[in-house]
Design a protein around this nucleic acid. Structure first.
Lengths: 198, 198
DNA sequence: GTCTATAGCCCGATAGAC
DNA sequence: GTCTATCGGGCTATAGAC
């Protein structure tokens, strides 16, 4: 965090400000003031607001993909994977109520977002949904999927919706327990590994 | 819709613009232009933006409460109630992708909203959650709650989160089917009435 | 109740010196 | 790469005529 080039620093600050205020309400002036430079300097690195935000969301997607890959390499247990993923958000909310998913935050402004940003947001939603589909298939293959006859695809979309809604509610009430309730329900969808055959 | 006093007309237009652009991006100028009056005229009816939006959300809450009461009086079947409620949003999304829940839309801007607006949003979330709790209790009383041992309160919060996330996703992809998938999953939580004992 | 006019501020973006 | 200065425009809100 200490040695950071200017572009990365700008992206970091912009990311946080978007989570706090949304796309329309955060400004070059906000970012500049916090870093201690002038607005014009930001335009040198990111010529337009649309360009800046596209870079912010692009980096967010990169990080998320890296984290999910790491999670996939750490364990093969689908329940454990889901637990880790949900715990990440739970911990994030506990430390700072505004720390929700960048794309869930931006999604509510989609009608006024530049097209290149909208594309990134949709791409992110597909990334997570695909990951959830693979996770649920793994669980189903081990007969540990507790969703009955529910189609996997439908279930994956529904899980993502719960997560986003839960993040939003947690922030609205400044209370991480709103998300924890969602987490509890979601975890019940995948049964634990039975170590001893019955 | 024809005979409408000026205040109601302003509230209607503001409501739609908030759904399209959010709190920070919609303006008195937008509303004035669409109605065909001047910005200053709006300030006569609603002295500040905070006041205007509080009135918009206040009226929304009134309407929702009235609709839920009506729904409660039309049927005692919890499954039928949930179906009707979810179908309302499904139809709304099919006719216009931006027509999501006003409070779900505003929730993402909570950190920058005037306190009186935040209070209304939280109140609305509690209204719906309470309604869902009653609905789930009714279902449980008839042994038609399919959520196993899940605590009713946790389930109600989780359902509301799914709904909000589903609305957001539908709008993000401009595709009502995103919400329909959530609806299908939610409907499976309450069993149908068995007309003949097995 | 609606208008014109305007105050005072913030916005994204650009030009050009250094 | 960063700065100062500025353009052209948007914003909320108010004053005061009608």
């Amino acid at each position: 965090m200490k040695d950071m080039n200017r572009s990365d620093h700008i992206i970091n600050v912009a990311n946080r400000l978007i989570l706090e205020k949304g796309y329309s309400a955060f400004s070059y002036a906000d970012v500049a003031a916090e870093i201690g430079i002038q607005k014009a300097s930001i335009h040198y690195h990111f010529p337009s607001k649309a360009n800046l935000v596209q870079n912010v969301v692009g980096r967010y997607r990169q990080e998320v993909r890296a984290n999910l890959s790491k999670l996939d390499s750490l364990t093969n247990d689908p329940r454990e994977k889901l637990e880790q993923y949900l715990s990440y958000w739970e911990a994030s909310l506990q430390s700072k109520a505004t720390d929700i998913c960048l794309c869930a935050q931006l999604a509510s402004e989609i009608p006024i977002l530049p097209e290149e940003v909208t594309r990134e947001i949709r791409g992110h939603f597909r990334d997570i949904t695909d990951w959830l589909v693979r996770l649920l298939r793994d669980a189903a293959a081990e007969n540990r999927f507790a969703g009955g006859e529910a189609p996997i695809n439908e279930m994956a979309h529904s899980i993502l919706a719960s997560i986003h809604g839960g993040l939003l509610a947690s922030r609205a009430f400044n209370d991480a327990r709103q998300f924890s309730m969602v987490k509890n329900r979601l975890m019940s969808l995948i049964n634990g590994k039975t170590t001893v055959a019955k």
